[in-house]
Design a protein around this nucleic acid. Structure first.
Lengths: 345, 345
DNA sequence: TTGTAAGCGTTATCAG
DNA sequence: CTGATAACGCTTACAA
């Protein structure tokens, strides 16, 4: 295990001073150096296998070229493509991403944040925020570069890249209406998250705009975005005894659970009840029935967040931006035109 | 944006020297200090909001408490649980994980490796290795701590944590035989990967042990672990015109593609052909039909790899270990007893 | 048990 | 354009 080659080694071998070598090797400063000297130095460095010691550089410049990426749980299929987008973007700018799983626990989140701050990350991309997220807001107030992705904080000072949830829900509802549905239920996401809150608000808004019956009993709130909650919410919906012919779910996992619960109760999707999701996560096109859902550009939302953060770090600019990306309705097998026979549950 | 609190600040505030403060704050050295002094210092540090500057510590000790985690593509559903296991384990030991996607490209892999070495990571967990992986072997030869996870390198000097592929295939085959199947095809994984090679070898081995017909035309090799390749392989299998009543696929994604191609050709699974997968990745229990597959402990394989790496880093021990974890057969709907009517394709 | 001082490898400032 | 020098914040012999 041999000692790493340092600037000093290169300097000695090349016959120049370390500071000259440092400049020659830094693209931003190499123009200060005679071109051929710079080239010679680069050759020597290459030959010796010189690699910058990132810790030393970080200590000196107090920039680590690392960013922290916080997600609730990498295991949730929605996040990998987002993370991938973030990483690809950030890597192009020379940043490495450190990923942390918060499990949606604010305590874990702030402990992770401080762990990453110890490491001196240059910024944060956060997918795990809640609408009221003190940790994130105070990060921003301290002048740290932060971009939330997919979700937003209820504070315009925190930059974000998110999806056009309103448009997604509008497209879902008009699609269902075009199929003849009127009594449409909603399994809402947790209102602690901007996604849950926005989709719910849009549901109400467009339900009204489309002049659909506004029965509050047709909305049930989930606590988490998972299949089990989807099942529970359908059970609750059925228990309320209101008639409905379609369910708009706040995300795909809820929809998957919802369909499962319907089947268990002898109701078929889409024959008896149409169901829609949100996100178009991997595999939902292969389910039976394939899920009608709103496609978000998962990779892209991550990529754009990376770009935005890189710019904030690079320029030192801390003015907040809010990027909202377009969505698409993907019509598949879980929605169907209303026929004569309506279920009377 | 105020200056960070340093040891010196704490020292001044507490009325001790920085070295004393450093020791007091380091659990490994605090025993060298009068207990109450140590406590007082910790209190002051806390009050001032002291956070260690990791870059400075790393520069001094040349240990960063970061590890590199390389996967082919985080977007592939098999990896998130593994990564999660790695991270959870490593975090308990105080390490942060930096994840990189290689896309299965050896060039990208070695570029990532050197990027991470620049950053001075203390070790590597690599899920993206091929059987002949020069980059990884030379890493190990340089004395770097490396553990491969899920896959192995064809070199016993490289530590690994993997699954009992042989047992998995054995269970699959005996299951199929118990259902009356005899002419069993195999869609093998790429032989560049230990998983593909092991599962293929085990297939041959147990096919012989079970005295099944050994028709080489019943094996077709995929190039990548994805659905499209599964489809292609089934097409090839059908084109060969040999009779078969079951297909053992080297992994779940191949199986998903295989079933799709079968359906397209008017063959039903499991009615006409039984299909098995490997990995039990998320969602395959919700497909139609739900996939019979071999369950590996995805989280656990990652966790164990993290433990092993942490130990290697901690002790400096570089002797290779090879951990092989048990697997389970999960019988679901994609396999069925052979009935009278055999398809004659 | 605590203090002193050197040095990890860079980069930035200042001279020349 | 290049060289000398200091300093980033921490750890660790060694000295007291």
């Amino acid at each position: 295990m041999k000692r790493r080659v340092t600037l000093k080694d290169v300097a000695k071998a090349a016959g120049f001073h370390v500071s000259t070598v440092s400049r020659a090797l830094d693209p931003n400063n190499s123009h200060l150096i005679t071109a051929e000297v710079a080239q010679r130095i680069r050759d020597v460095a290459e030959k010796l296998g010189y690699r910058q010691n990132a810790a030393a550089a970080a200590l000196r410049t107090s920039r680590t070229r690392m960013v922290g990426v916080l997600v609730p749980d990498i295991t949730n299929p929605i996040f990998p493509p987002i993370i991938r987008g973030v990483e690809d973007s950030l890597r192009r700018h020379g940043y490495l991403s450190i990923i942390g799983n918060t499990d949606g626990d604010p305590k874990r989140e702030s402990s992770l944040v401080s762990m990453l701050q110890d490491r001196g990350v240059d910024g944060f991309i956060i997918a795990s925020v809640e609408l009221e997220d003190k940790a994130v807001v105070s990060l921003v107030e301290d002048g740290i570069a932060v971009v939330t992705v997919n979700r937003r904080v209820d504070n315009p000072a925190v930059s974000s890249v998110s999806n056009d949830e309103g448009e997604g829900i509008r497209r879902v509802l008009t699609h269902l209406v075009s199929l003849g549905h009127e009594r449409i239920a909603h399994i809402a996401g947790s209102q602690r998250f901007s996604t849950g809150a926005n989709r719910y608000r849009s549901f109400l808004e467009h339900r009204e705009a489309l002049r659909l019956p506004a029965d509050p009993e047709l909305v049930v709130f989930s606590n988490m975005y998972n299949e089990l909650e989807g099942e529970r919410c359908v059970e609750e919906l059925l228990a309320r005894g209101r008639r409905f012919t379609a369910i708009v779910c706040a995300n795909d996992r809820l929809a998957v659970g919802a369909i499962e619960a319907l089947v268990r109760r002898g109701l078929k999707c889409p024959d008896n009840v149409s169901v829609t999701g949100f996100n178009d996560m991997p595999m939902v096109d292969r389910l039976r029935p394939p899920l009608t859902t709103v496609r978000i550009g998962q990779y892209n939302v991550g990529y754009q967040a990376g770009e935005l953060l890189a710019e904030m770090i690079g320029t030192g600019q801390r003015e907040a931006s809010h990027v909202v990306l377009p969505v698409d309705l993907v019509i598949r097998g879980s929605t169907r035109a209303l026929t004569t026979a309506l279920p009377e549950n």
